[in-house]
Nucleic acid binder design. Structure first.
Lengths: 233, 233
DNA sequence: CGCCCTACCTACTCGCCAGTAGGCTTACCA
DNA sequence: TGGTAAGCCTACTGGCGAGTAGGTAGGGCG
């Protein structure tokens, strides 16, 4: 799970700065995700990275800077993974579906990064929460925009932005929570988990218990009550 | 927001142990919720509680014990608040509605306690995560049972327990996240926020963008597309 | 009044960890 | 081949915070 770099003994091999920085970041994400910001020590990070502490300070600055850099890197990666999977010309439900698949795909590929983002960062008070809340805010805005856009497709009086934002917050939270649940129940493929959430938020329990499910685009025109939307990752 | 006890100067007034313990617990929840486990210091907790550090140790034991006790107290309070609001003879949607109202009511009354529960506890690795995951697990089980029970009301082939559990996890996460959002947007009453989540998870976006909303029990038989379910806390 | 138990305190120890001073080695290039 | 800069190190300091030793006050009860 966290075997980043073998523990070093003696002097480390000379490597160009960019490479070392990547190693250090990987190690930092690993350690922060396991221990949280305060419990993680720079000594342990440097050890996992296979270098000595002064290198760490020379390249990445203080502990806080390092942590903030980790959050930025991981959140950027994640937002890119999600937005690159979504085509804005598609209908809203398909966009949502693509986003969810991209999200769960990212989490599955990148568990340590996800933990840093979701758990550790939000609990620290400093500049991190800010950094993290920022990304979370971007995700929520993305979803909120999608929702507002959705109602333009219909003749409904447009819901207030506040309302859309709160619903988006709920959806993002559902995704986070389900992702956590998934980490403890990893046997299922990403696609199935994503499909569950899609069904929940698009159809609602009311429809689900009545047997109505949402269908992925490929079988869009068929009607029925069979399972649906369960292809793999 | 966190003015528990005025800062003391000199010797504190003699009080019976039970009272002091309550004060200390209140102070601890306050400090832990603001700073998180590691960043919180026993010195600060004792100061906020209006006593000296050795008292703290004499009454509540080590820092870890104190934290665990906080989590236990707050989680018990919350679960009691929720389950006391739900009547198990009601139909599933009404039960869910009652549970959501109770939950948001609790969060509104008890913000510090909520933060300790939701943010701080989950990020620490020790015996706390266990304690907290336990309560979260109870909440998820509660919802999962409700879902499984819901499908008994219909003729749908009963969903797997795993599926119900994952949906419950998503719902609980949505509630947590929406509660956090609410802390940043406190102008709305608890009932409105609860109604939003109810609509989301029961009706789904698909119905919502089409103008269908869920109605609270009092107007159960009416049909229509007006707002609905928005009375106060 | 004197005993003692409980509530409460000041003032430490001690380990851990962020951050640094100062110096050694290897690659590259003039 | 010697200069120099980039990559790397060992070995410290300084402070913070958990936990404790060893007390002082004040109320109840004989």
């Amino acid at each position: 799970m966290h075997a980043e770099q073998p523990v070093r003994s003696g002097r480390a091999k000379r490597l160009p700065r960019a490479v070392r920085e990547r190693q250090i970041m990987d190690a930092a994400v690993d350690v922060f995700s396991r221990l949280g910001f305060h419990a993680a020590s720079m000594d342990e990070i440097s050890e996992v990275a296979g270098i000595s502490k002064p290198m760490l300070y020379a390249y990445l600055g203080s502990k806080e800077e390092l942590f903030a850099t980790c959050i930025r890197r991981e959140s950027t990666r994640m937002m890119e993974a999600i937005s690159s999977g979504v085509e804005s010309e598609e209908p809203p439900d398909v966009q949502l579906w693509s986003g969810l698949r991209a999200f769960f795909g990212f989490v599955g590929e990148n568990r340590a990064g996800w933990q840093v983002l979701h758990r550790q960062a939000s609990s620290q008070g400093g500049p991190f929460a800010e950094e993290l809340a920022d990304m979370r805010g971007r995700a929520i805005s993305l979803v909120a925009a999608l929702l507002v856009h959705s109602s333009d497709f219909t003749n409904v009086p447009r819901a207030g932005d506040k309302e859309a934002e709160s619903l988006a917050a709920a959806l993002v939270g559902a995704g986070e929570s389900l992702a956590d649940w998934w980490l403890d129940n990893p046997e299922e493929p990403a696609g199935v988990v994503a499909a569950r959430l899609m069904n929940l938020v698009w159809m609602g329990f009311g429809d689900l218990v009545a047997g109505d499910v949402w269908h992925p685009p490929s079988r869009r025109s068929e009607r029925g009550t069979e399972r649906g939307a369960e292809e793999g990752a």
